[in-house]
Structures are given as structure tokens and as C-alpha cells.
């Protein structure tokens, strides 16, 4: 979009903090209300689309996003192993809510990074 309109960019600039808050709400309340890590991450990834419609300049570096995604996956695996050990040895009993919120946050971060990588890559670099 070479000639993007002022109206669109202004209104999206007002809207997209609200989308971000909604995504965070969906992630952090995944254990109580419908939603969860995947849906919230996809909502946060949709902010990239809003950003592209408002002004098409890449602002997230691919390298950084990819490192965050890989680190998140690693932390997710470590968390799973840790959870297994803790529950089988019965060191800590209960406190599942913390584990659920933590897993949902990690999955949401990972999905948001993945979606923004796909969108950035597709929209800005794919030329022919």
C-alpha cells in the first residue's frame, strides 16, 4: 500500500493498544474463561497486521523474534520436565494455577512470535 490513508493509520493507532490488552486478557485468563495461549498469541500476532495497514515499515527484527521463539520453546520443555519431577516427588502439592498461567504465557509468547515472523516475512520480504 503505497498511499496509505491518514484516517486508517490514526484509527489503528488508537485501536491497537486495546487489541494488545485483549490479547493479554485472553492469555492470562486462559484457565478461567474460554481462550488460552494459542488464541491470545494469535490476537497479539494480528497487531502486526494492524501495524502493516497503518504504516508499512518493518519494526521487529527477524533475528530477535526468532531467538525469543526458540528460547520460549526451550523454557516450555524445561518447565514440563520440572513439573513432572515436582509432581512425582510431591515436593510441592497444589498450585496448579501458577503452572497453568505460566504455560499459557509461554505458549502465547511463542505463538505471537511465530505469527509475527510469518506475517513480517510474507509481507515485507516476499517480492517475487
Amino acid at each position: 500500500m503505497s498511499d496509505h490513508s491518514q484516517l486508517l493509520s490514526r484509527s489503528i493507532g488508537i485501536i491497537y493498544p486495546i487489541i494488545l490488552i485483549f490479547g493479554l486478557y485472553v492469555i492470562f485468563n486462559g484457565h478461567v474463561t474460554p481462550g488460552g495461549g494459542f488464541q491470545g498469541g494469535a490476537i497479539i500476532g494480528a497487531i502486526m497486521i494492524a501495524k502493516y495497514l497503518a504504516d508499512p515499515i518493518p519494526f521487529l527484527s527477524l533475528e530477535w523474534t526468532q531467538s525469543v521463539e526458540k528460547a520460549t520453546l526451550l523454557i516450555l520443555y524445561v518447565l514440563a520436565a520440572l513439573f513432572c519431577i515436582v509432581t512425582t516427588l510431591q515436593i510441592v502439592v497444589g498450585h496448579f494455577t501458577i503452572f497453568l498461567i505460566l504455560s499459557n504465557t509461554l505458549i502465547g509468547l511463542k505463538v505471537a512470535c511465530g505469527m509475527s515472523i510469518i506475517i513480517n516475512r510474507f509481507v515485507y520480504y516476499e517480492t517475487r
Partner: peptide, 24 residues
């Protein structure tokens, strides 16, 4: 088991956590 109201989250993060890891 977990104290969470959303059963879907409990299924994919507690009963079937292994599947979630491989989905990621």
C-alpha cells in the same frame, strides 16, 4: 485436580501436556 474452571485448558495443559509440547 487443578482448580481451574476451563476444562479445555486443563485437558491440553494437564492431561495431554505431551501433545501440546509437540504441537509447539
Amino acid at each position: 485436580d487443578t482448580g481451574a474452571q476451563n476444562i479445555v485448558t486443563v485437558v491440553y495443559l494437564y492431561y495431554r501436556y505431551y501433545d501440546t509440547l509437540f504441537e509447539a
